[in-house]
């Protein structure tokens, strides 16, 4: 076994991963909070008013990063599910299932804020256009994964089944988007592009990107927090978990 695989197995072992996650997690939460607050100040105070949409456009400073996070979390989950199913790595199973509720939360925020933005802009809370519908289907996919994971008693089997469902969903998302696109859409086109010039002013773009960064960091913090719990559940009978369980009683007593 060479040094890299040895390192990999060492950090992948539940006790090490638990400790490591515990050390990184507060930094993620803290950094996410600080970056998020700076981004909010930029978005709510510094960014100028949009000449077309007035101040209502300020919703996109949370709406768009959350929409990105909803997708990012799904791919993070699916990638981990793939690793878990192919190489049977316990840590990946736990990571994949830890990402599901966080992604669902971000998708939910996207739907609600989109609705709140749509009311003054389009005059309706909800329209059946491609992006809204795909986002709703994405939420259903998340709920399906979470539901399946919760419904199976055996933790490892639950993670594998739910991971498999997540992988099916990865194939499904583009198909759903394509099929729903079939109806004509009244959603405005994409205004931020990674490649080429974006159609949005610099004073508006930096809070948006900063908020995206903040939500990413926050996401990892939350995933790590859930991973720690997942590892405790998975290794319930092991000595290291026992030490943690009993150690906490002593600390509180």
């Amino acid at each position: 076994m060479n040094a890299l695989t040895l390192w990999f197995h060492k950090t992948g072992s539940p006790p090490t991963a638990y400790r490591l996650a515990g050390r990184i997690m507060p930094w993620c939460y803290g950094l996410g909070l600080v970056l998020g607050l700076v981004a909010l100040y930029g978005g709510l105070v510094l960014a100028p008013r949009d000449y077309q949409q007035g101040d209502a456009y300020r919703i996109i400073f949370i709406h768009v990063p959350c929409a990105w996070m909803g997708l990012f979390a799904y791919f993070f989950m699916a990638a981990n599910a793939f690793i878990a199913l192919v190489w049977r790595i316990k840590l990946s199973e736990v990571l994949a299932m830890a990402a599901a509720p966080v992604g669902a939360a971000f998708t939910f925020i996207t739907l609600v804020t989109g609705s709140l933005w749509g009311k003054p802009m389009w005059g309706t809370w909800w329209t059946w256009d491609a992006r809204l519908t795909s986002e709703l289907v994405l939420l259903f996919l998340y709920l399906g994964v979470i539901g399946l994971h919760a419904a199976i008693e055996d933790r490892r089997q639950a993670a594998r089944a739910a991971g498999f469902l997540a992988l099916i969903g990865v194939v499904n998302i583009p198909i759903v988007h394509f099929s729903v696109n079939w109806w004509n859409t009244l959603h405005q086109g994409s205004t931020v592009r990674l490649m080429g010039p974006s159609k949005i002013d610099g004073s508006m773009i930096w809070p948006l990107l900063l908020m995206a960064l903040a939500t990413h960091v926050w996401f990892f913090g939350s995933v790590l927090a859930r991973t720690r719990i997942g590892l405790l559940e998975l290794d319930g009978g092991k000595d290291w978990v026992r030490a943690i369980a009993l150690g906490e009683t002593e600390a509180r007593a």
Binding site: L40, R49, G54, D55, A56, R58, I59, L116, W117
Partner: peptide, 13 residues
């Protein structure tokens, strides 16, 4: 007031 959109903006946040 957010230019009249206060309820929507603050609601979202």
């Amino acid at each position: 007031a957010m230019g009249g959109y206060g309820a929507y903006v603050w609601g979202s946040y």
